[in-house]
């Protein structure tokens, strides 16, 4: 329901995984495979020489310090900022507006999501089939969508739970005059396991 960029999550995990795979396998191969080991030993001298040449050539003014290190530092800071933004972007997408409609030429009617949420919770929470219920509103593809999560008591048929919630949603449709898209999430969880079986039917 939330606007988490799942492709980005998977891409990030894939990149880190591939990096670790290559680095780990490379390190193991370097010490275990004789050919790679010899190649690595031969390359050590030239690479050290090359890098120290670079560091000397890129001196920053007359301080004697190379600008490569500060440049690396800037790249690190940028990477950290990008990662922080990446973390902060997770799990967003709540909205507080259920309906926006230009009802006349002079104004717009806005129905707060709280109206729908309270109406549904009022209708559902008193039912003995449910231990707990929660209604929230998310924006999915720029459309407000209601999310109704209910926790069933032990042994309650999901069909019955679905019917109760759907009836409440239909009543809300009547109230608002137009249907809102809705997701119903029927879950069990710890609280339903410790409560007694319902004596229904």
């Amino acid at each position: 329901m939330n606007s988490t960029n799942r492709a980005a999550n998977r891409l990030f995990i894939l990149v880190i995984g591939l990096t670790l795979l290559v680095v780990g396998a490379g390190a193991a191969a370097t010490v275990l495979v004789p050919v790679v080991r010899d190649g690595w030993s031969d390359a050590t001298g030239p690479v050290t020489h090359q890098v120290s040449t670079w560091l000397q050539q890129t001196a920053l003014g007359d301080t004697g310090v190379s600008w490569i290190m500060p440049a690396v530092l800037v790249l690190l800071v940028i990477a950290v900022i990008v990662l922080v933004v990446f973390i902060a972007r997770q799990g967003r997408g709540h909205t507080s507006v259920a309906l926006t409609e230009p009802t006349s030429e002079h104004g717009t009617t806005v129905v707060e999501a709280a109206v729908a949420e309270h109406a549904l919770e009022e209708a559902i929470s008193a039912r003995p089939e449910f231990v707990a219920s929660h209604v929230s509103t998310y924006r999915v593809r720029r459309t407000p969508v209601l999310k109704i999560s209910v926790t069933c008591r032990r042994g309650v048929s999901p069909r019955d739970a679905a019917r109760i919630v759907e009836d409440a949603v239909r009543a809300l449709d009547e109230l608002l005059g137009r249907p809102l898209p809705a997701l119903v999430q029927i879950s069990g969880g710890f609280r339903s396991r410790v409560t007694a079986t319902t004596r229904l039917q």
Binding site: I148, R154, R159, A162, V184
Partner: peptide, 23 residues
């Protein structure tokens, strides 16, 4: 996913198991 007309419904396997156990 549970078939429904008006809403999209997802059910935890746990709830299905619990209801089947009762029946």
């Amino acid at each position: 996913l549970l078939s429904a007309e008006r809403t999209a419904i997802v059910v935890d396997n746990e709830v299905i198991a619990s209801a089947l156990a009762r029946h």
